[in-house]
């Protein structure tokens, strides 16, 4: 198992627990989506795997060793992009490579490769303030990939984008995953997005966040958003999620 989440719970301060004991195992090269209503703790779980937060109970193992801090083996893509505004597009993608002390030639080669992969080869010299939201998120994805982590954690990465851009980036991510084969944990509250991208969709309950049900999406690598099988899974998950949302409003 690539990632083992064992009995992970989180309580902030003296409040009610945000996350009840979570048990989840994620295989190498698997694409897992965490889905649930706002405030179900899915981002908290991701932040624990990333090493930004320490769990109150339980632990997370990556390749068998416990997570204690953020590290280059787990790349993170944030909803807010979080590009370094003082670095150019190329400089952002190069950031992790520089930290590793790679040679200039090697860095340039890798940067060029990943900028091409996300279709930004022509924008290498631009600064983040000159980019649209979709372009910024492509840079962030390239930055995470260029650092060659085995795991990529994505926290609602397309949540701030408009509907069209969002679908384009979903297509790209799906294409990239067919090339790169990373282990991906992807937080979203779009059911369509989850069904389109994931091998498994983990539906969580509202506070405290627990796993409600896990759906396997056996739809093949390239998916059609309008295929009947797609809609079938989508509606099954939608029904499950609605129960949770309804609970929040009671």
């Amino acid at each position: 198992m690539k990632i083992q989440i064992a009995g992970v719970g989180k309580t902030f301060g003296s409040g009610a627990p945000a996350l009840g004991g979570i048990d989840l195992e994620i295989a190498e090269r698997e694409f897992v989506c965490l889905l649930g209503p706002s405030g179900c703790g899915k981002s908290t779980l991701l932040n624990i795997v990333a090493g930004f937060l320490a769990p109150t109970t339980g632990r997370v193992l990556v390749d068998g060793s416990p997570v204690t801090a953020p590290g280059a083996d787990r790349g993170v893509v944030f909803q807010e992009y979080v590009l370094f505004p003082w670095l150019s597009v190329a400089g952002n993608v190069e950031f992790g490579l520089k930290l590793k002390g790679l040679s200039r030639a090697e860095r340039e080669r890798t940067v060029a490769r990943y900028l091409d992969l996300v279709g930004l080869g022509a924008h290498a010299a631009k600064f983040p303030t000159q980019l649209s939201g979709g372009m910024k998120q492509r840079v962030a994805i390239a930055r995470a990939l260029a650092n060659s982590p085995s795991i990529i954690l994505m926290d609602e990465p397309f949540g701030a984008l408009d509907a069209q851009t969002r679908e384009v980036l979903q297509d790209e991510l799906s294409r990239i995953q067919r090339l790169e084969h990373k282990t991906i944990v992807f937080v979203t509250h779009s059911i369509r997005e989850a069904v389109y991208l994931a091998d498994r969709v983990v539906v969580m309950t509202s506070a405290p966040g627990r796993i409600k049900q896990i759906f396997e999406v056996k739809l093949g690598e390239v998916r059609d958003r309008f295929a009947p099988e797609f809609t079938e899974i989508e509606s099954a998950i939608t029904r499950t999620v609605k129960e949770e949302v309804a609970k929040v409003h009671e």
């Binding site: 090493g51 590290g71 993170v76 979080v82 930290l99 650092n147």
Partner: peptide, 29 residues
């Protein structure tokens, strides 16, 4: 400074000294 910048750098493998010179200093500039 934005704590997310620090998180982003850490998850790209930045050690404390690198964090200081490559993120905190330019972000505070």
């Amino acid at each position: 400074l934005d704590p997310l910048l620090v998180r982003a750098a850490q998850s790209l493998g930045a050690r404390p000294a690198q964090l200081f010179f490559r993120v905190i200093l330019p972000a505070a500039l």
